[in-house]
């Protein structure tokens, strides 16, 4: 019995995957060594804000990957949402008043509309995947191209400058010395963690991601969960899009190019398995912070965006390979 308890303890420690926390500490160490001002409150808050946008879509991606899916459309949905939220605050654009703010209807409704549109597009992803039985990546690839095209089409490819104060607050406002968007992210993390851990929905999601057939025989409808996670992913992409528009003070169809890859990398580095059914939102956030720190350090080292991209490609590839080798060892 004692031997078994030791085995159990070992499993628990292995389950924690201390490696990534070690990496986190190491990265913070490197960063503060490279830039003496790194650990100042101001800089940390800045970093927090810059992580948040990726954080939102990574949370959505976590849900999708938990269900053994993959959502390539998040970055495009983010850009699309950013464009519509800006457009709805520049309704006069269609009357020729480009510079003035003119709301289609009160700002809270605008936010709600955009969130609903984002969720709906995610819902469509899920619906096509489950009803027409097309591979997740192919459908979301189609949606990625489609949504980006929509973003360009409705904005005419132009940047829409200036959003309302309320919207700006979403992206760059501060509560005390902490950015509002970081609060929003924290709130999302808490809610999602509770949903995943403390509700029947969450437990059933894990189950249908790990083994859809066993889940079905246990009375769960995996297709329903698949559709729901894509809807959630669409919702978070829209939320990130609104905040991003506020942060940049503009609506822009070109933002967040390639962020879906960062989100995938964050989820994988965080330790959520591509096979589905394993992982958590908190782990993903650790992944988001690691990715953000790597990018931050690369910038501190004066490395240009392009070589940064190379390094991110390698980071993603090694994360996937390590995970694959790790899971092979466990079986």
């Amino acid at each position: 019995m004692k031997k078994e308890s030791v085995q159990l303890l070992k499993q628990r420690v292995a389950g924690l995957n201390l490696g990534r926390y070690l990496a986190l500490v190491l990265l913070i160490g490197i960063a503060s060594f490279l830039a003496p001002g790194f650990l100042t409150l101001r800089n940390v808050m800045n970093l927090l804000r810059s992580f948040s946008f990726l954080g939102f879509i990574s949370i959505g991606m976590t849900f999708v990957i938990l269900s053994a899916g993959l959502d390539l459309s998040v970055a495009s949905l983010l850009a699309f949402s950013g464009v519509i939220v800006a457009l709805m605050q520049h309704w006069g654009i269609y009357l020729g008043h480009i510079d003035q703010l003119s709301f289609i209807y009160p700002i809270p409704f605008i936010f709600i509309t955009v969130l609903v549109i984002g969720s709906l597009m995610g819902f469509v992803n899920g619906l096509i995947i489950t009803k027409l039985k097309i591979a997740d990546f192919a459908v979301t690839l189609g949606m990625m191209v489609f949504a980006r095209g929509m973003a360009y089409a409705i904005s005419g490819g132009r940047t829409i400058f200036g959003v309302s104060a309320a919207n700006q607050f979403m992206g760059r406002g501060m509560i005390g010395r902490i950015p509002f968007v970081a609060f929003l992210l924290l709130f999302s993390i808490v809610v999602c963690s509770i949903v995943l851990r403390y509700t029947v929905f969450g437990k059933n999601l894990y189950a249908s991601g790990e083994n859809p057939e066993a889940a079905r025989l246990s009375g769960i409808n995996p297709a329903l969960y698949k559709i729901t996670v894509y809807t959630i992913s669409g919702f978070f992409a829209a939320l990130a899009g609104i905040c991003m528009a506020g942060r940049l003070d503009l609506g822009e169809p070109r933002v967040a190019q390639g962020w879906e890859l960062d989100a995938i990398a964050a989820v994988v580095i965080g330790g959520t398995s591509f096979a589905g059914g394993q992982g958590s939102v908190v782990k993903t956030i650790v992944g988001v912070v690691i990715i953000g720190l790597i990018r931050n350090i690369l910038s501190l080292l004066g490395i240009l965006p392009a070589p940064q991209q190379m390094i991110m490609g390698l980071v993603l590839l090694s994360a996937v390979i390590l995970q694959s080798l790790g899971s092979r060892k466990r079986d």
């Binding site: 059933n204 894990y206 189950a207 790990e210 769960i220």
Partner: peptide
């Protein structure tokens, strides 16, 4: 393949339904 969630705990498997 059809009855169990191998990566989940005894507790989670028993209580799922």
């Amino acid at each position: 393949r059809q009855g169990l969630f191998l990566g989940k705990s005894v507790q989670e498997n028993i209580t799922l339904p």
